[in-house]
Design a protein around this nucleic acid. Structure first.
Lengths: 340, 340
DNA sequence: ACTGCTTGCGCAAACGAGTGCGCAATTTGG
DNA sequence: CCAAATTGCGCACTCGTTTGCGCAAGCAGT
């Protein structure tokens, strides 16, 4: 029956006052008389009036929506990050638009475009592994939509970003293996395009060099994070006469695929070769051969921090302040060795 | 410099025509002369004009946004469902607002409220395990926001829903175990409040009864899906003199916890007792003791189907058609036994 | 030349709310 | 008792876009 949603206009008509009076009465404006105020407020309650936020957002040029783009939410790392983002978002009365790039560059652009159309107040993004060109982000500037990159960040300075210090973390990993007596430490890395791959490799090389042993690039493989590519990398590493006795994998998913290969080829896990990894996903506690150590990257905290920075940027924009510098937040990563 | 975004007004002023002419020229209205049309379109391109969708949505009373609420995206079942939803959404130029309830009733309400404020065009939801009261959904009716429930659906008829036929599926599971010679089949179920628990239990009872053996309710446990609660259930089942030789668990996560308990208590998995489960998550292919069979529930398809129905509902609403009936989509579940 | 049709465009209202300003009516102060 | 200050409320504009209607000019038909 009551098909139309109650509006301020409706209330005004029924009470024979002007819309402005109703608007002010509802926002408790001091210049409105007590009688009118209560009359308005009571009718509003009776009609179950709720302001049309779309209209308000439209006037204010704000949407209270932020866009989050990441490769795959099925990866626990990213779903944890979202949890961090969402938790903080709810506190700030923000809701989040979700878009997965599925590691596809074109899709990343499409999602970004959709978000732009929706006039999101800000964007938090973890780049697709294909992304090595960044012009599509420039159009957001025109709309003054702030962007915070996290985890998979672009390789240049002039952006706001949150990520783990993987160089340091990787050195820690090398040290840990070294102290356990390992000397032939292999490294299965991710795609070059991802900045995080470079960070890891730098750490690996620095870690090995720090031990005064020669870096053997035969022990370094690069994958595109697919199972096939990981198996290929394992094959390369273990077909040699002098195979590694420890393997560092790009993340826990790569670890799982590497271990799968090892099992299929009867390589004795934790005897012939020790696996350690990045990410420390909860799910690995259930698997047959969890990594013996894992570099925790605190996705929840990364998500929270990204959101925190984004809120700061949005606030600054609203107050027309210009920020002096780029946020560059390094979250310390820690090596976790206790496994259930 | 060019701080303001170009608007239709701006173009009108520069070209000394009216805004309506510009609007029509851009939408290729037949009553606008070719000269004016091209003049407008060229300037629009030059200024990089893009229509303000917020304004248009506001007028149209549409947002091209749908809200998706589910318990946890970290569960692969749900993240797969989202993938289904998102895939279809992008095709229809829709974007999705994401909200996790974390299986908390209050949070579910809060998220729903936020979505209402955002004036989403529709909602797809999988209920929290605490939800057994449904009044908060009624307020969406007032806003004529259609809702599609999926997987965890309410127990009554007058809603649109998508879910698997778990009764049939569970009978299939019982049959499978029976054919393998198992007679003492335990059942670790989820919370009563979830409709899916009831469906499973019905199937279990019907399956057992169909075999002309007596249903032993000592073999049926109920959990709240936490690890502790699963371990407790396992304890109850295995402390008896006549423990089960097969266990059906509510889903793969419960399976993992059940297997963990079995390992800790030196129960020989796959020898003394066989585990089978629901969901068939990809991640289980990496674990030490995957379920020997799993009832695939096709989350991607469920997501797609939900979105399909929602699109239908939104279309019907726009055309002011009233639908004759409630969508009640049963996706057939199938028992998968091939494991890597 | 008058009617009628087509072409090309502008006026103004509409969506739902916020807000600066002005105008009365009332109250206060001297 | 009159001026000034205060109180209470409405007018009209704004946000960016769409759209029904109307008006004028041009053209064809009779």
């Amino acid at each position: 029956m009551e098909n139309k949603l109650p509006t301020i206009k409706e209330i005004a008509k029924r009470l024979n006052v002007s819309v402005s009076t109703v608007s002010r009465a509802l926002s408790d404006h001091p210049r409105i008389g007590l009688r009118t105020k209560t009359r308005v407020q009571e009718l509003a309650k009776e009609l179950n009036y709720e302001p049309n936020s779309q209209a308000i957002f439209f006037k204010q040029k704000k949407t209270y929506v932020i866009g989050v783009i990441l490769p795959y939410i099925r990866e626990e790392f990213f779903s944890e990050a979202i949890r961090g983002i969402e938790t903080l978002a709810l506190e700030h009365d923000y809701t989040i638009l979700l878009g997965q790039s599925f590691d596809d560059f074109e899709r990343e652009k499409k999602v970004l475009d959709a978000f732009k159309k929706q006039r999101v107040d800000g964007v938090i993004i973890s780049l697709s592994k294909q992304t090595n060109e960044y012009t599509h982000f420039e159009s957001l500037e025109k709309y003054e939509i702030p962007i915070v990159y996290f985890d998979r960040v672009p390789p240049f300075k002039q952006v706001h970003k949150v990520y783990c210090d993987l160089r340091k973390g990787t050195i820690e990993m090398v040290n840990w293996l070294f102290n356990k007596g390992h000397r032939r430490i292999a490294f299965i890395n991710g795609p070059d395009k991802i900045h995080a791959s470079k960070e890891r490799l730098d750490g690996y090389i620095d870690g090995i060099s720090g031990k005064k042993i020669k870096v053997d690039m035969q022990l370094v493989e690069r994958t595109d994070l697919t199972k096939e590519s990981t198996h290929k990398a394992m094959e390369n590493l273990f077909k040699t006469k002098n195979p590694p006795n420890a393997v560092i994998t790009f993340n826990d998913y790569v670890h799982l695929d590497a271990v799968q290969y090892a099992k299929q080829h009867h390589i004795k896990i934790n005897k012939e070769v020790l696996f350690i990894s990045y990410a420390n996903l909860p799910v690995t506690s259930y698997v047959a051969h969890p990594p013996m150590a894992s570099l925790e990257q605190y996705p929840f905290r990364q998500g929270e921090k990204s959101m925190e920075i984004l809120m700061e940027l949005i606030k600054a924009k609203n107050e027309k302040r210009t920020l002096k510098a780029w946020f560059d937040e390094k979250i310390p990563a820690t090596l976790i060795t206790t496994r259930s």
